[in-house]
Amino acid sequence: MSFEQKLLKTIRALILIGAIFGAICLWVVQWWLTHPKKQPIAFSHKIHVGQRQISCFFCHTGVEHGDIAGVPSVQDCMQCHQVVANEQVVANERPEIQKLTGYWERKQPIEWFKVYKVPKHVHFSHKVHIAFLAKRNPDALKDPGKFICAQCHGDVSQMSTIAAPVGTVMLLTGNANPNTSMGFCVDCHHANGGPMDCTACHR
């Protein structure tokens, strides 16, 4: 084998190793990024939705009338927690609720780690989907967590920590959640007679 051939072989091998190594790194990094992180407060949907039976719409007020579900304001949380478990907070117990009151006293908004992400090139409206699901099953509004929200978000009432199901990392969008993948949306649209043209979502 001539020197030239050996050199080409070496370069090819190095590129191949580099590409594989790079792919593994990116895969790991993306998985790490999309894996549920520690939230600033360990808020438990299992306690609030599962045990206390609080409706999803009570906190996520934007979901019926707007595109974005939103998260409750610190003031909304304090409306209950200025009373609920307050004695324990005063007694320096319940550290997570203490964190909440700390945010309120410092007049500081809470920055949650976003679990459900829709790429920027996709337009998604909660209002439209809630309305559709409610129309299909009017009783669904009595327990939206079970009959409406669970369609995409899973059974949140059993989740101590909100975690999007992690599947194959979507390399181009960094999306690891199959429930917010295009295939998931399209399948549901197809099954339920939803719009199938591109501009329904990509606008």
Binding site: S73, V74, Q75, Q108, P109, F113
Partner: peptide, 17 residues
């Protein structure tokens, strides 16, 4: 990406709208 809980949010105000 962060999802921010605002400190106070009037009821009539919808997030992002």
């Amino acid at each position: 990406q962060a999802l921010v809980s605002q400190l106070e949010l009037p009821e009539y105000r919808l997030p992002g709208e």
